[in-house]
C-alpha cells in the first residue's frame, strides 16, 4: 500500500509541473492585458510602462515563470493586480464557501441517490425502478445552471421561501447560511445524485445476483437485512469511488452555480479573474482548482485501492 501510494505520488509530480506550466503560460496567451484592464479605458503609455514594471511584466516569459514558480513554492502566489489583495488570501477567503457548497451537494446526492438506487435495484423493472431510471437520465441531462434558474424561479421568486442569491457565513448566522446554500447545493448536486444513483443501481444488481446473497436469502436471513448488511456493503466500493470522482467535477460545476447564486467562492473568483485578465489571480485559482481536482482523484484512487483487496499494487 505504501509503495502504491508513493508510486502514485511520483506519477503526480510531472503532472503537477505540467499544471503549473499551463496555469502560468495560458494567461500570457490572452489578448489584452492586466495593465490595460487595470488602467481602464484611458491611460498614457508611460503609466502603462510603469505599471508593467511594477508588476514584473517586462521580464522575458521563462524568467517570469521561474520567479513565479519559486514564489508559489514558498507560498507567495502574488497579488491580484486588480485589487491588490494577496492571491492566497483571496483564495483562502473564498475556499470555505466552495467547500461547503461541494459538501452540501455531495450529502444531498448520497442521501438521495443511494437509497433510490438500492430500491430501484431491489424492485427491478417496477415502478420505483422506472422512476429511478428517469431521475438518473434527467439528472445527467438537465444543465445545472438551468436547474438553478428553475429553483430560483420556484422557491425564491414565486413562493418567496428562500433567497435567490448571496452568501451569509456559517459562523455569522447558521440558519441564514443554510437558507442561502440549499438551492445552489441542489442545483450542483443533482447531476452527482444521478450518476451515483445509476452506479448504485447497477452494482447492487450485480451484487444481488451473487451466489452468497442468494445463499443468505435461502438460509432465511430477512430481506432488508440481506440487502443492507450484505449487498450494500459490497456495493459500497464503486459507490464511494464514483462519489469521489464526482467531487472533483463539482469544483468545475461550482463556477457556473456560484455565478448564478452570487456565491463568493473559488469558482466565482476564477471566473472574475478570467474576465478581468487578472494574471496572478487566474494563475492562482486555476492552479488551486486543478490541484484540488488532482488531490481528490488521488485520494479516490488510494481509498479505492485500500478498500478493494482485489487490487494489486
Amino acid at each position: 500500500m505504501l509503495k502504491y501510494t508513493l508510486r502514485r505520488l511520483v506519477i503526480a509530480l510531472p503532472v503537477l509541473l505540467g499544471i503549473s506550466v499551463i496555469a502560468f503560460f495560458i494567461v500570457r496567451l490572452v489578448p489584452g492585458d492586466t495593465v490595460t484592464a487595470l488602467l481602464g479605458a484611458h491611460y498614457s503609455e508611460a503609466e502603462a510602462e510603469a505599471l508593467r514594471q511594477r508588476l514584473g511584466l517586462d521580464q522575458p516569459l521563462p524568467v517570469q515563470y521561474v520567479i513565479w514558480l519559486g514564489n508559489v513554492l514558498s507560498g507567495d502566489f502574488g497579488q491580484s493586480a486588480f485589487t491588490g489583495e494577496p492571491v492566497l488570501e483571496a483564495i483562502l477567503n473564498r475556499l470555505p464557501v466552495t467547500i461547503q457548497l461541494v459538501a452540501i451537494s455531495i450529502c444531498f446526492a448520497v442521501f438521495v441517490a443511494v437509497p433510490l438506487g438500492v430500491m430501484a435495484a431491489v424492485g427491478r423493472s417496477g415502478r420505483t425502478d422506472f422512476f429511478a431510471t428517469l431521475f438518473g437520465l434527467l439528472g445527467i441531462s438537465i444543465p445545472g445552471f438551468w436547474l438553478g434558474v428553475l429553483l430560483i424561479l420556484l422557491f425564491s421568486l414565486t413562493l418567496g421561501w428562500l433567497p435567490s442569491g448571496g452568501f451569509v457565513s456559517l459562523w455569522d448566522d447558521p440558519i441564514a447560511n443554510f437558507r442561502h446554500m440549499i438551492l445552489p447545493g441542489l442545483s450542483l448536486g443533482m447531476a452527482v445524485a444521478a450518476v451515483v444513483m445509476r452506479m448504485t443501481r447497477s452494482t447492487m444488481l450485480e451484487v444481488l445476483n451473487e451466489e452468497y446473497i442468494k445463499m443468505a436469502r435461502a438460509k432465511g436471513v430477512p430481506k432488508r437485512r440481506t440487502i443492507i448488511r450484505h449487498a450494500l456493503r459490497n456495493a459500497l466500493i464503486p459507490i464511494i469511488t464514483i462519489t469521489g470522482i464526482q467531487a472533483g467535477y463539482l469544483l468545475g460545476g461550482s463556477i457556473v452555480i456560484e455565478q448564478i447564486f452570487s456565491l463568493p467562492g473559488i469558482g466565482l473568483l476564477a471566473l472574475q479573474a478570467i474576465t478581468n485578465r487578472d494574471y496572478a489571480l487566474v494563475q492562482g485559482t486555476v492552479l488551486f482548482i486543478a490541484l484540488g481536482f488532482m488531490v481528490i482523484n488521488l485520494l479516490v484512487d488510494l481509498i479505492y485501492a485500500w478498500l478493494d483487496p482485489r487490487i494489486k499494487y
Binding site: I19, I274, A290
Partner: peptide
Amino acid sequence: SFPDILLALVIMAILG
C-alpha cells in the same frame, strides 16, 4: 487535471 468547464473558459478567454 482541469475541470472541463474551467479549461474551456480559459481557452475562450484566449481565443475571444
